[in-house]
Amino acid sequence: MVTKNYPDPKLNEKLRDRYYRRDQSNPDFTKETEKLAGSMAHMCYQCGTCTGGCPSAPRSTYRIREFMRRGVLGLEEEALTDPDLWLCTTCYSCTDRCPRDLAPTDVIMAMRNLAFRRDIVPVNFLKTVQAIYASGHGVPNNDTNRAAREKLGLTRDPPTTHMYPEYIKGIQKILDHYKLKENADRIVKEREG
């Protein structure tokens, strides 16, 4: 990247260097993405079948094909800081149809994993982690539901970690092994104070 350092910050931004230069590529990013995804992203020949069937593409700037391209070229910064990374619904239509037998959905998941390692993650994911740490459920029970369950002849709490909270420790151990709760709490605090 060539930095221009013009005194006017607006001009500096407007005229910033947009060339692709080799120093923007990180080959480790490609390797790491492929390993996590379990798919040879570097074999993508940019046919566009993935984007052609993507439900998110027609209503946003999200382009799965471009994310594959970034994977191929090792454009780590662009990929991980693009907010569109989180618009994939993981419907797997692209993976189903890819003629090179790649899994673009898994590439997105891999990139999201790598983004998380940099604390780049929307807060709703972290809230889910916290809920699971507390109760074992991403969508926990509530009293309206308990009443309804009782009327149906079911136990007020389902026979999950709700009814057997002793199992929650095990779940917490798993989450702690990967420091997930710790990181989730930290990032939530940084964002929401």
């Binding site: 998941m109 998380f116 993650v121 994911f125 889910t128 982690v129 699971i132 459920h137 199992y167």
Partner: peptide, 17 residues
């Protein structure tokens, strides 16, 4: 008995496989 969230593939798979 003791089952938990599966865990939600979109939520968990996205942050840590």
């Amino acid at each position: 008995e003791g089952a938990s969230c599966c865990p939600a593939p979109g939520a968990f798979g996205s942050i840590d496989l």
